[in-house]
Design a protein around this nucleic acid. Structure first.
Lengths: 115, 115
DNA sequence: GGGCGATACATAAGAGAATTATGTATATAA
DNA sequence: TTATATACATAATTCTCTTATGTATCGCCC
């Protein structure tokens, strides 16, 4: 089992759902472990999703109708594929707009220049 | 009493300390209520600090030696002024660097353009 | 052939940071 | 005179994540 150490764990709070939805929107059908690897790659090793956060989050997104699943047997191993739904796609748009707005607001408050 | 509604409360998590330190660094001696007003102004009404978050956060920063206080009587009302310490100044620099890094990472993962 | 790291799922206990609610009190403007 | 703004504070609750634990397969290397 891996033990992730995130760069700034506090700041990540509240961004997990958005990350999951966005990655699934951009890469089609994906399974949990695959998502962690993709996020690790996109973040250049800075965001390492923990299983304890990942799986409950995926389950919640599914329960909310934002993702749908398909279970596949690979050899003797179960793999659960997730796909983003139409509702999920519209939510991810909204969430990303919110995130951009958040960056803008925070930059004003902290008076930092965003490249 | 005011009932603040933040634009994206989840995202704000973990940024409160940084906001407080930065505002105090930029404006010298300030008291709690004054800070909420300044943050509201800088964020164009998007960040409305709640008292339940603000005061415990200020107390913690003081306990950690990042802020120091001075209590003043204005008429019959108590006012507690906060000033940032040398330690606090070095921390705020670090925190802002972390925040910039966080934005960079998130922008890569969400594949959004930061203006 | 046996052990280790990577793959792959899942849930439960605990921590941390905020919201929401509540309490107290003064100042001011309509 | 009464509502709103100013000004502090703490407690209960909620939410989200970390940490810990559990189970099991796959593939490589010695």
């Amino acid at each position: 089992m891996y033990r992730p150490i995130m760069h700034s764990p506090e700041l990540l709070k509240g961004t997990l759902q958005t990350i999951l939805l966005k990655v699934l929107q951009g890469n089609g059908k994906m399974y949990g472990y695959e998502i962690t690897q993709k996020v690790k790659e996109l973040s250049v090793g800075r965001i390492l999703l923990t299983e304890g956060a990942l799986y409950p989050a995926l389950h919640k997104l599914e329960a909310d109708g934002l993702l749908q699943t398909e279970t596949v047997l690979i050899g003797k191993r179960v793999r659960k594929y997730y796909t983003i739904t139409v509702t999920g796609k519209s939510l991810v748009k909204e969430r990303i707009m919110e995130f951009k707005d958040f960056i803008k607001t925070m930059s004003a408050v902290l008076q930092v220049q965003i490249v």
